[in-house]
Design a binder for these strands. Sequence first.
DNA 1: AATCAAATTGTAATCGATTACAAATGGCTT
DNA 2: AAGCCATTTGTAATCGATTACAATTTGATT
Lengths: 328, 328
Amino acid sequence: MANIQQIARKAGVSVATVSRVLNNANLVTPQTRSKVESAIKELNYEPSMLGRNLRNSESRLMLVLLPSISNPFYNEIINGIQNTAIANNYNILLCETDSKAERENIYLNMIKNKLADGVISMDPTINMEKLNELAENHPVILCSEYEEGGSIPYITTDSELAAYQAVKYLIQLGNEKIALINSDEKFLYARLRRAGYERALKEFNLPIRDQWIYHTKDLEFQDGVQAMRMLLQLEERPQAVFAVSDTLAIGALKALNSGVQAFESIAVVGFDNISFSNMTNPTLTTVSQPMYKMGCLAANMLMSSIKGEKVENIVLDHELIIRESTMG
Amino acid sequence: MANIQQIARKAGVSVATVSRVLNNANLVTPQTRSKVESAIKELNYEPSMLGRNLRNSESRLMLVLLPSISNPFYNEIINGIQNTAIANNYNILLCETDSKAERENIYLNMIKNKLADGVISMDPTINMEKLNELAENHPVILCSEYEEGGSIPYITTDSELAAYQAVKYLIQLGNEKIALINSDEKFLYARLRRAGYERALKEFNLPIRDQWIYHTKDLEFQDGVQAMRMLLQLEERPQAVFAVSDTLAIGALKALNSGVQAFESIAVVGFDNISFSNMTNPTLTTVSQPMYKMGCLAANMLMSSIKGEKVENIVLDHELIIRESTMG
DNA sequence: AATCAAATTGTAATCGATTACAAATGGCTT
DNA sequence: AAGCCATTTGTAATCGATTACAATTTGATT
């Protein structure tokens, strides 16, 4: 791989001139420019980002942290981030932490090391202490999951309200015994969705029963299957189920499908509107967040932050998408 | 962010000594080592990868190219790549090309620019000419999709054989009218799976009818729905369907579910064994590839290639997973 | 032709690390 | 105490780009 010196020698100019051509400074004569350009073409030269970044301390790369790409919830957000980034001459790198601290560290170090200019974290499992420390000196944006009262700018939706509305809808359909399939409440979204669930029940004077609240270990389909099986074994079976994630809700539907006919009338509501939620049988009623938009805005926030501008938090609207799983 | 000079000054030693401490060369006295280490801690220093990589021309980063993370087929492969990479002190960056040449270029340039040491491409839409050119001077591995007769090392499964076996299985169930939902045949896997489909039909003297071969534009669920709808409108409806991807097969199942009862006896076989395929109703019969293993081996191949070793192509075994969608 | 300002090009420092080689230190023998 | 070798540390070049400043060229004006 040729370097800038070789181009300079070949073109019979100095490295400064080559650099000027590369960065289209317009103080180069057309003749020299074309000499340099043909040398570049001839030697098949690509400027080294390492050299350039080292000098400029800028990489035009943004990191996107997520726990796992297997949750399709992230798909559209990532599309939004990516399209916005590319439109602004940035690139993104997807970093799957698998909820492991060691991986997290690796990626956060890339920021400290100037290998990337900033980070958008969608990882609820991230170590907030470390992230806050990083955020003191580097651009960081939280997307979807955030820290209450924290100082890192975030973009999210109102999980509590969405959960409240979803459960209220189930109540208005005539259900009184409503179960919650929640994930680990160490996550803010889990606590908020539970709060919304409880608010709706309280408002209608329905009891909140611990045995109807199931906590899953993960967000895989199988966790939803297990949760639903457990709920079906209860003496007093719930009439409806609100799951905090589509993956869990789809697992729950599966458990209902595989059981006896009588179970088919149990209503299920999910959260996220992943693309698969429209392919299940019955199709899944779910809360939809404007994920693509969220991604776009998150990218914009990060770019502002990189420029040194102050950025405000954003809370986007959601929407309840009613499908077959709540139609009896 | 502190740099190596400041550490050296603080610790009262030279930069060379600091560097030696960082790279645990064991020719540093315990006393100096601890002086340096406490300076590092005090100034919260992290060595710059830019400086280091520029000097060493090594980044210990591998790129993973894929067209889109929305196809869950890639999930397990990525896990395999990532775990293997991390175990060997490498990191991976997921690069979604969205099948766009411009994005492809960006990522391939990262390799040329030494920002990453090598690339594993799982992108069937990649520009092979460019990739071949890159492969002349840089480590490149193809995973899953490969180039017939090409010179880039690959790891894959035998798509033709898998398709042949899947269709043969449908025939042995008593089906004679078997449709193929294929993607664009510009992709090798699509051509191979079609060949397998045709081989099975020919072997049993069944006609190959063009109207039973549908080509989708993409691999989204909706493409499968559309394909199936089309097939159902034919005068002579197929009795069974082989789809070259689970996403398409799941869409096809959805189209069957939403139709009249009579359609429910149409058998469907997919390809990939994505995690959804076990959540549909009926659950999907599909071809399973050892994806995790494929990822691990691909990472190993790339690391060998980075070391300058010659690597051999690998063809892994597959397996037909029989579930409800072919049980009538 | 001489002068001068503007436009173009070149020189060399710089970013932050690694490392070959040189220099200094320490310990041991005589 | 001198000499010698082994161990430890320091100096300075290097990777590949950018850019302030210096030097040169160009062309217009007198």
